[in-house]
Amino acid sequence: MADAASSSARVNALHKFPPPFDTSDESFELIAQGAESLLYRTTFSTTGQPAALKVRPEKKWRHPILDKRLTRARILAEARVLVKLSGEGIAAGGSTPGKRAKVKQPKEGEKGVAGLRGFVPAVLALDWERGWMMTEWVYGRTVKQAIHDTQAGRRAVEREQRLQDLKELLRRIGEVVGKLHASGVIHGDLTTSNMMLRPYDATTPDPTSTDSLDGDVVLIDFGLSTQSVSDEDRAVDLYVLERAFGSTHPREEDLFPEVLTAYAENEGSGMNGKVGKLVLRKLEDVRMRGRKKSMVG
């Protein structure tokens, strides 16, 4: 049987594939290499649809037992949250299997306000002992890429159009983060690389490199997520996004308040109204602390 890692010329053998992929005859295309994980595009379905395989290879420099435990925790944190979210509006009582999968119920009046089902990739398979997870493929580009791909036209009308499109995109981001928080989940690593912009007619496997900022915002990369309904945790999540956005998109930074406005006001965000306002107030405290901390050094 061919070794997947060595037989596929498109993959440089950065690591040995975990089983059963070491004896697979499918192809694997390396899409991204993070500090902790590798992301491949492959297939999982008998219908040939693409899927995303996230592999967390062994870290040789870490103590093996600690490494196994960390890998396991990361994989399971991500999978549990994704499965929980895919069950929104479906699960009776909203619980997922496994002892620690008990889902914290959102506060009264927040539950089921706006489902995130369809706005996160579905989990297809995983092996927490072997350190991999297979999810549904999300078509499109990362939001980061999409913003970088847009060019402000030379004419004033084009510039104005781009501004409007960007603002709308930021509002959709605010809404989707609101939905997430209303579901009792904190992402933990909100950046524009951890969000995909999926074209509304996502039927083509390859992202079209257009200027368009249309599409659903799909959240990915839940390896650092936690389940919480605390305003403080929610505010920190927004703060992380605010900081990341500012450094990744310095020229668009002044548009970021659109995210917060949509988060706290939009009908589609589960956080509109009083709860959202409380979180934004907390966000001001978190910013203050952030500033003090950076002043002290």
């Binding site: 499965v83 895919s86 699960a91 997922t96 299997p97 496994g98 620690r100 999968a101």
Partner: peptide, 15 residues
């Protein structure tokens, strides 16, 4: 609509 959730539960089983 329930497919994805049920498949996810099977994947997570025993965790």
């Amino acid at each position: 609509e329930a497919d994805a959730y049920v498949v996810g539960m099977i994947a997570l089983k025993g965790s």
